[in-house]
Computed example of a mutant assay.
Amino acid sequence: MIGTRRKRPAVALDTLDAIEPPGNAETVLGVLSVTLLVELLGILSGSEVWLLGLLIFLPSAASALCTVQQTKFIAAWTALFVTVTVLVRAPAGGRWFDRALLVLLTLALGAVSVYACHRRIGREREMLRLRSTAAAMQRHILHPLPLLTDDVLVNGVYEPVQEDRLVGGDIYDVVDSAWGTRVLIGDVQGKGLAAVGAAFAVIGAFREAAHREPTLTALVDALDASVVRHNSYAEQTGDDERFVTALIICVDAGPEAQVVNCGHIPPRLVHDGAVTTPALDSGVPLGLAELAAEPTTVDWFDFPPGSTLVLTTDGLTETRAADGTFYPVDERLMKQLDVSPTELPRALHEDARSFAGDGRRHDDVAVLTVRRSPRQ
């Protein structure tokens, strides 16, 4: 279990997803302003009654922005104003049928607007419930960052390419085990719901095996077996098989870190104003161990106190500028050395989006920083 966890401030989902209705004072002021405008135009044009046709659509606009009570008020006000104007200010000898039709149309549109507002708010509440459920699932699937253990502080940025999804094909996790803090970052082949299913399989296996297996090689074998099992289920349902590139790192009280690279992007080490890439053997992705000519091996590299590891997926490294140039991670990372480790993932991600120019993401993005905790 994580020893101490720093949580992000909670943000109410309705402030993010629901349409924020105007205040009652703003509603009254807006209605009076529109009514005054219609009245003024009517006086200037000499056809006041017929300009009321503009006013009767006011409840329809309110139904898309206001609460049900506010829409009822606007519909009632509009009906009252139109009726009084038709009865009191209509020119003598006018056609009463046209005036009655205008009043009836006002009442009908008001009633329809109130009903539409009620339906809109119902849909919004249902969407908020779904989003709340999805957010709760995400918190259990992908732990909120930052995460603090006795060995490291892990922070990061995670953004699926499809913004309406909370989980994509990129994965990460942190487990504080009896053998040190174990960090996983990975990337499932492909996109879509099938990729998400493989991501769930790997994360679940990591959380269980990281506490059970004393060695990284045994842990990786367990992760590979989980992908193989997932692929067997996928084959039965007609889905494509997937493999998963992954980097599994273990940090303990020693001066070095252990790592197994399963076909993933190697980490960058930031220390003493320099950025280096540890020399690592690259094995096969998870799910393809049977094709490997060599068994899984563990690499070691220096990870001194106060240094930071930067872990990424190819959503960052394969970001391209308009001319097709890939995002130069090492070069840009050198320019971000004055940024704190907790802010570095966001700074890199925003810099990559600026580098791409079009503002569009073409793949899931995960960027983690693993900061070695100083020890007394």
Score class of each variant (00 low, 15 high):
T71F: 10
H143L: 13
S177G: 09
P59F: 12
P91A: 05
A135Y: 09
W77C: 03
T85G: 08
L153P: 00
P144N: 06
V84M: 06
A61N: 05
L58D: 11
W96C: 02
R119W: 05
S47F: 14
A61L: 15
V68L: 11
Y115M: 02
P160W: 14
L102N: 01
G168N: 10
S132C: 03
E48R: 15
L65S: 08
G169L: 09
T83P: 05
Q162Y: 03
L107K: 02
G122T: 09
L130H: 11
F97L: 11
A79K: 00
L142G: 00
L105W: 03
E48V: 04
W50L: 14
A90G: 12
A108S: 09
L102F: 02
H143N: 05
L104S: 13
A61D: 07
G168V: 09
V114W: 06
S113N: 00
F81L: 11
F57I: 12
D164N: 15
S132A: 10
W50V: 11
D173Q: 11
N155Q: 07
S177E: 06
C66R: 13
T149W: 13
L109Q: 04
P59H: 15
R95F: 07
V86N: 07
E124A: 14
E159D: 12
I121E: 10
H143Q: 14
W96E: 06
C66F: 05
G169N: 10
V152K: 10
A62T: 15
T83G: 10
V154K: 10
F81R: 05
W96V: 08
A136H: 13
M137Q: 06
H118T: 10
L87Q: 02
A111Y: 09
D98Q: 10
V68H: 03
G168I: 02
T67K: 09
L166D: 13
T85V: 04
V68F: 08
F81Y: 06
V112P: 00
L101C: 11
A116G: 01
T71S: 02
L166N: 08
V152C: 14
A90W: 04
T78V: 15
L107E: 00
D98N: 05
A134W: 06
D98W: 07
T78K: 03
L54W: 07
R119P: 02
L142Q: 02
D170M: 12
Y172F: 09
L54H: 10
D170I: 08
L166Y: 12
I56C: 11
L55K: 05
A111H: 04
V103C: 15
T78F: 05
A79C: 10
A64H: 06
V157N: 03
T85E: 08
P144E: 13
A90R: 03
Q69V: 03
D150I: 06
E126G: 00
T133H: 11
W179F: 08
F81N: 03
T85A: 01
Q162E: 15
A178D: 10
R123H: 11
S63K: 04
R139P: 12
Y172E: 03
V157I: 12
S132V: 05
G168R: 00
L54A: 15
A75Y: 05
I121F: 02
S177Y: 14
R99L: 14
R95Q: 03
L107F: 01
C66D: 07
F97G: 07
L58R: 08
A178C: 02
H143A: 15
M127V: 01
Q162F: 00
L109A: 01
S132F: 03
P91I: 06
A111V: 12
R95V: 08
E163A: 13
G94A: 14
